[in-house]
Simulated assay, not measured.
Amino acid sequence: MTTDTVSADAPLYIVLNAGSGAAEKEARKAAIEEVLSAAGRRYHLHLVEDGGELDKAATAHAGQACANGGILVAAGGDGTINTVAREAVRHGCPFGALPQGTFNYFGRTHGIPEDLSEAVHALVDATIVPVQIGSVNGRIFLVNASIGLYPKLLEEREQDKRQYGRSRVVAFLSALKTIFLPHRRLNLTLEAEDRTLHLRTHTLFVGNNRLQMEQVGLTEQAPDVAEGELAAVAPKPAGKLGMLGILFNGVLGRLGDTDDVVAFGFRRMTVRTPFYGRRRIKAAVDGEVLTLTTPLHFEALDGRLRLLVPAQRRESGV
């Protein structure tokens, strides 16, 4: 694994998603400023109050980081981290993450602390490591991308959260509701290097590297998912109760207990759907629901993201 040393003079261009509450926003801002000021590190902190301005802020600060030999940093959940990382990849500048979401899959994958102060300390003492990302139709993802039931679940969950508030109970009940709503099965043709598969499924999930398989309990089902590959997972059609079982097993990390799950690794894959006058399909990309044009082209992009990895994680060789 190739690493680059981070210059102590490299300025940090931090894009901080304000989050939901004023007190929380100020606490996060203060925590970042306290650690960096104590370390004598140059930084520019941009607080994004409106989520609609995140793309614009990420683009502007990536340009500044690139022009001034700096590092682009995202502070927020997986969606925020994806948006800012996308600009880091496009501009070719190093990228740091301060995970502040509910699940923080990306941060946990790379050993970045969930405590904000600890994450900033780790950022100051980090090394740049090229890491793998995935892409679907040119749109990068750090954690996963999916089509079918999961994008619908995300849309329903956001609507329910706006109506009933943000909590894990609301998210769970929303997921149960979505499972029992009518939804069509996908007829897919998967063309991945040396294999072509025709299948019907409620959802196709593509995870970025083997860790995604381990998190849902599919390691034994897909032993051929190698370093440098993405992981494709598609449960075969099931009834409402069967889908409920799949949901629970996935949450508990025991998806391997579910019968009839297609799972394999690949570097490039094309996903085709029958053409019935429509060629657009909804996809969830790191938690953001997008509309993409079929066929879908997935690809593992090895070493494309120049990520600041904590020293402890680097020394462990993980």
Rank of each mutant, 00 (worst) to 15 (best):
V170C: 08
V170P: 00
A171K: 11
A171Y: 05
A171L: 02
F172T: 15
L173T: 09
L173W: 13
L173G: 04
S174W: 07
S174I: 14
S174N: 14
L176P: 12
L176W: 14
L176E: 09
L176Q: 05
L176D: 13
K177D: 05
K177L: 10
T178V: 03
T178S: 11
T178F: 01
T178N: 01
T178K: 04
I179E: 10
I179K: 04
I179H: 07
I179R: 02
I179P: 10
I179W: 03
F180L: 13
F180A: 14
F180Y: 06
F180M: 12
F180I: 13
F180D: 02
L181N: 07
L181A: 06
L181S: 03
L181Q: 13
L181R: 10
P182W: 08
P182Q: 14
P182S: 14
P182F: 12
H183S: 08
R184P: 12
R184I: 07
R185Y: 09
R185C: 11
L186V: 08
L186W: 07
L186M: 09
L186F: 02
L186P: 10
L186D: 01
N187S: 14
N187R: 12
N187T: 13
N187Y: 03
L188M: 07
L188W: 00
L188E: 01
L188F: 07
L188C: 06
T189E: 09
L190D: 03
L190V: 01
E191W: 04
E191D: 12
E191Y: 02
E191V: 12
A192S: 15
A192D: 11
A192H: 08
A192P: 01
E193D: 15
E193V: 05
D194S: 10
D194Y: 03
D194T: 13
D194C: 03
R195L: 02
R195Y: 01
T196M: 04
T196G: 05
L197K: 05
L197M: 07
L197R: 11
L197E: 07
H198S: 08
H198L: 02
H198T: 01
H198G: 02
L199W: 03
L199Y: 06
L199M: 04
R200S: 04
R200Q: 15
R200F: 06
T201F: 01
T201I: 10
T201D: 00
T201R: 02
T201E: 00
H202I: 03
H202T: 14
H202E: 15
T203F: 02
T203W: 04
L204Y: 02
L204G: 09
L204Q: 06
L204C: 09
L204T: 06
L204D: 05
L204M: 02
F205L: 14
F205V: 05
F205I: 13
F205Y: 09
V206N: 00
V206P: 03
V206T: 10
G207D: 10
G207W: 07
G207H: 06
N208T: 09
N208A: 01
N208R: 03
N208K: 10
N209D: 13
R210Q: 15
R210V: 10
R210C: 10
R210S: 15
L211F: 13
Q212N: 10
Q212R: 04
Q212Y: 07
M213R: 00
M213A: 15
E214N: 10
E214Q: 13
E214V: 07
Q215T: 14
Q215A: 15
Q215E: 15
Q215I: 08
V216M: 15
V216T: 00
V216K: 11
V216F: 08
G217L: 08
G217R: 02
G217Y: 01
G217H: 12
